[in-house]
Design a protein around this nucleic acid. Sequence first.
DNA 1: AATGAATGAGCGTTCATTCAT
DNA 2: AATGAATGAACGCTCATTCAT
Lengths: 199, 199, 199, 199
Amino acid sequence: MQRMTRAQQQQQTKEMLFTAAMEQITKFGFEKTSINSITEAAGFSKGAFFSNFENKYDLLLQLTEKLKDEERTLLKSSLNINDKKHTISTNGLNAYFDHIKNNTACVILDIEMQLIASRDPQFKSFYYQFQQENNKALGEIICKVFAFKGVKPSLSPESLAQIFIALTEGLLLQNVDNPGKQIKAILEALIEKDNKNLK
Amino acid sequence: MQRMTRAQQQQQTKEMLFTAAMEQITKFGFEKTSINSITEAAGFSKGAFFSNFENKYDLLLQLTEKLKDEERTLLKSSLNINDKKHTISTNGLNAYFDHIKNNTACVILDIEMQLIASRDPQFKSFYYQFQQENNKALGEIICKVFAFKGVKPSLSPESLAQIFIALTEGLLLQNVDNPGKQIKAILEALIEKDNKNLK
Amino acid sequence: MQRMTRAQQQQQTKEMLFTAAMEQITKFGFEKTSINSITEAAGFSKGAFFSNFENKYDLLLQLTEKLKDEERTLLKSSLNINDKKHTISTNGLNAYFDHIKNNTACVILDIEMQLIASRDPQFKSFYYQFQQENNKALGEIICKVFAFKGVKPSLSPESLAQIFIALTEGLLLQNVDNPGKQIKAILEALIEKDNKNLK
Amino acid sequence: MQRMTRAQQQQQTKEMLFTAAMEQITKFGFEKTSINSITEAAGFSKGAFFSNFENKYDLLLQLTEKLKDEERTLLKSSLNINDKKHTISTNGLNAYFDHIKNNTACVILDIEMQLIASRDPQFKSFYYQFQQENNKALGEIICKVFAFKGVKPSLSPESLAQIFIALTEGLLLQNVDNPGKQIKAILEALIEKDNKNLK
DNA sequence: AATGAATGAGCGTTCATTCAT
DNA sequence: AATGAATGAACGCTCATTCAT
């Protein structure tokens, strides 16, 4: 078996730090999460952190990028499901739902990031550069659900995505048990309304 | 002119601290807001804080109570508008909308509080004890809007309130320009759907 | 029944503060005892303290004076017992022993004061002005015990008093169960020795 | 010349902090000694303290252990002097006396510790676990002095040690000039008394 | 005389960051 | 690359003290 190269080893360290950081920040919030607690949770010493990140803010940026990248990948693959299978068209959305249900951590993290963005203009533009792209993909998926029912949405794809996210995050924040139920109800209502108005 | 009594003076100090605390916490978040920055913003010394609050956590509790109380008062008076004037029934909701539009600070604060609640069980039960009551009032208002259109909502009042709040907070978090437009669209869609199903 | 005069009322307040101060300082030490804890224990507010004492250091001085005065009174009356009754001559000492046994608080306080004196020259001279006089009285009492056995002590009265106090405080500091037993053993040994050498 | 390893360097830092802590606590008492004053006196920043001690209480524990260990070492070596040289048997005691005379700081510190122990049950048991062992060694030494004179002490070794310490600390607390003189007088008296009673 | 809100210096502690190893 | 001792600013909080009432 081949040994890992230095670069691979460091990459692994970084992954472990990312994982630990996500856990800790989800649990305690960005401000209350200390670098020490992250590295210790990852099984390293403080030094490992500063070998992999410039500072705590840099971790925030890289973590944001990483999470948004993963989200984008997920959304893109969800789009493909819709495109390829042409089956019950909410599949793509369902995959995204499932992901969210199993990853409330990500939702909490996203809220945390948006709160930080609301206070830090520099981070705001950084965050929304990723967010916009993902919103477009999510908007497309939702439009496909409309399209499957033969309805052209009166709201823009971007608007639909924002509504979808707002509901997901807003309901989770309120500790609502089964947010998916309510989100689907709203989606159906919107589709019905646009369907009726079309005629 | 009568001088203020000492109790009145202290009350005034406390109000000023509350105001400063709201501003600072909205701007920087609860964790990043130092007691010093609050008292300085209010024009007092650090000690004034501890004459009025037991500790920083106590401020959080009292601020929560105060905001939720004010929210409840606003909601109750919005309900009265609906009851008394019998005019375009969305008035009550509009008043609430206006309030929110002019008080994004309150929305940000509420999100902050919900995030803290998601991490601190003690605060969670404290927060939701107020939230529940306000949700009931908000749910009633929304039901009146349905009722004005002669529609009985299929979703529970509580659910409707949660949806409403989720949209308000979730869209604001996403920096959406005119959340009211989208929220009204959804409300209409829900009413139309329930109206149709009724027949 | 006559009401208390203002002066009497204040004197009573001061007594209560003294009592509370002794308790708190014994329990927690002078540094760790806050003025607040004293006044609260006495059932007053902080303000009462500063109406009766200039500052915390002033309390230390007045408390020292008070305790040393009471000690002197006790010692003087013990001397009188010896003088008048001519009975078992250790009576005077016994009275002092009993007092100490029932007032370990005073011993702890005395140690606390001596420690402060060892660090604060100003307090040192204040403390030892009282201490010297009391030592003389205590030395006299011990000499009477010697005299009763017909022995002239080779150590000075002052030395004997110092030894006596050192043993009392030193053994209590070590948490020794029955210090009186050991102190008496030493006293007897000293008497015997001086008795033998006399012959 | 070899550079110091990091462990050695930290050990040196810790020693310097210990030394500074002893000086400051002796001068000002444990409560009035701030961590800042300790580290500054040692030539470090505040942070160095927390790299070497968990908190201020931890310093107290470690300082206690260190002082009691040194004391034990001194006592053990004093015992050896007696055993090996078989000369004037008070040598061992004299060595201890000399140590005390040159280290009034240690005596003051011991009194401080005992006062703390009298108020803090947790520290009490910590302190007395060391104190007991040292008392045994000191008691043995004193017994050897008795033995040299052919006398079997009527008081237990532990009692003798307690008396010895009580006198040392109690006389120093009273600012007595030459405590050794009085302590030796008492020791002689006890030996004479037991010698006489033996016959 | 007594109250207690307000002051502000100072405390113990945390923590992001640096850097010699 | 990773360690972790040391730095030092900042934090939450305590407390002796002041003073208007």
